[in-house]
Design a protein around this nucleic acid. Sequence first.
DNA 1: ATAACATATGAGCAGATGTTCATACGTTGA
DNA 2: TCAACGTATGAACATCTGCTCATATGTTAT
Lengths: 121, 121
Amino acid sequence: MIENEDLCQVKFVNQSTVGRLRKSLKDPQTIERLAEIFGVLADPTRLKICIFLSQAELCVCDLAAMLNISESAISHQLRLLRSLRLVKFRRDGKMAFYALDDAHVTALIKQGMEHAEERAK
Amino acid sequence: MIENEDLCQVKFVNQSTVGRLRKSLKDPQTIERLAEIFGVLADPTRLKICIFLSQAELCVCDLAAMLNISESAISHQLRLLRSLRLVKFRRDGKMAFYALDDAHVTALIKQGMEHAEERAK
DNA sequence: ATAACATATGAGCAGATGTTCATACGTTGA
DNA sequence: TCAACGTATGAACATCTGCTCATATGTTAT
């Protein structure tokens, strides 16, 4: 018996299953990045921003108006999205236009929507 | 000009686009639920729990051992997953066996993994 | 130049979140 | 009946998070 200290004494789930699953888990960095992406979409404000930016290129003040939130708050969120390279942006004079730059995010939102819509809760 | 107070004066994005996007946004409850699911997967511990439970039925102590975390912490997280009806569980004597009970979550993890794995960052 | 404007950013704050610790509950075997 | 065990849960705590407010930066028009 190896590495068995923490496993409960009565074992129904066979040990090989536990060992197999343990090994199949991706490395910590990948898990971290995965959690990170989900974290981006876990905030309603940021989620809405991503939804909008997946459909059109928009400026900060448009987003602020659409979400009924301060431009500062939007700018902070966009800064986060920029740091994760999830959006691309383009300056045109005073304005800054943002758009989503990660197809996976769009796919995640679409996928998640199926879950969200089928729940009356 | 209707509902134009907050939109910036210089408009390049035409107003109809903003209006159209605004209307296309799902209702607040759906957005909330969507953000909620992503929130579940936004924590590394909970994410790993979901990954494991999508592959096998496991008890609390197995999860605790696999994730190298206290059984209490696992139990708290499982409580959350239960409240969101994302897991089903079955008692057998002293043990409690959990398994994932939402196919969408599995799909989300799979989808997200594609994003996470293609980033060296 | 300077005023108005769109955006960016740092500090600070309130609320949310995840873990630990102590303890309780229900089951099993002696 | 009682001790050991697996699990559950409430409270407390430290950390994280998202917003606001004040202020800064860069651009445009006068």
